[in-house]
Design a protein around this nucleic acid. Structure first.
Length: 186
DNA sequence: CCCTGATTCGC
DNA sequence: GCGAATCAGG
């Protein structure tokens, strides 16, 4: 695959939208982020409007993204294995306390503003599906199948599919679980 | 370790 | 022109 006019235009657009080189590489396919960066320099581009930083704050990043018109975003693919069986949490019980998803640390529900939803959906998909790795938290936020769905995305170490926060929820210590169950039972 | 863009230089 | 390797930084 080479830099056809079409792919160059796509590159310009995505770069202007603030996607990172690796995200653009994934979007275009058949190129590495190095190739993208090299091309960006040869084109004399450089310095995007709003750098997207990391994927850890999808709502904020998307809010900063330009509101571009775009075709309907492709449906997110079914989430990877560990996620599939787990419902998207709106509230989560920790002990006998229900925590709203909105209040979970460093997680955000996507604002419902329809006019920015299209741009957000694209960014989120890149940051969710394409950027999920062995060590990103796969706790789903929102409804899979909706364009504003995304994963928590924070770091998850040692082969655990969730970040430290969500791992605690997913894998409650037996003592805590027993205590909670006892309270609920009696 | 994860990621980012910048630069070099053999191809 | 291209992009892997490398560098420098968060």
């Amino acid at each position: 695959m080479s830099w056809t006019d079409e792919r160059v235009e796509r590159l310009k657009t995505l770069w202007a939208e603030g996607l990172s080189a690796s995200q653009i590489a994934a979007e275009l396919g058949s190129v590495t982020r190095n190739a993208v960066i090299g091309k960006v320099h040869r084109l004399g581009l450089s310095g995007r409007a709003k750098p997207q930083v990391q994927a850890a704050r999808p709502a904020a990043a998307a809010a900063a993204a330009p509101r571009v018109k775009s075709p309907a975003p492709p449906r997110p693919v079914a989430p990877v294995a560990p996620v599939a069986a787990r419902p998207a949490p709106r509230t989560i019980s920790i002990g006998n306390v229900a925590v709203k998803a909105e209040e979970m640390p460093e997680t955000r529900l996507v604002p419902a503003a329809p006019r920015v939803l299209e741009a957000e959906a694209i960014v989120f998909e890149k940051m969710t599906i394409l950027n999920l790795t062995e060590q990103t938290c796969k706790w789903p936020i929102g409804d899979p199948g909706r364009p504003d769905f995304f994963f928590c995305g924070r770091k998850s170490d040692s082969g655990i599919p969730y970040c430290a926060y969500h791992a605690r929820i997913a894998y409650q210590p037996s003592a805590d679980r027993k205590a909670r169950d006892k309270r609920q039972a009696g």
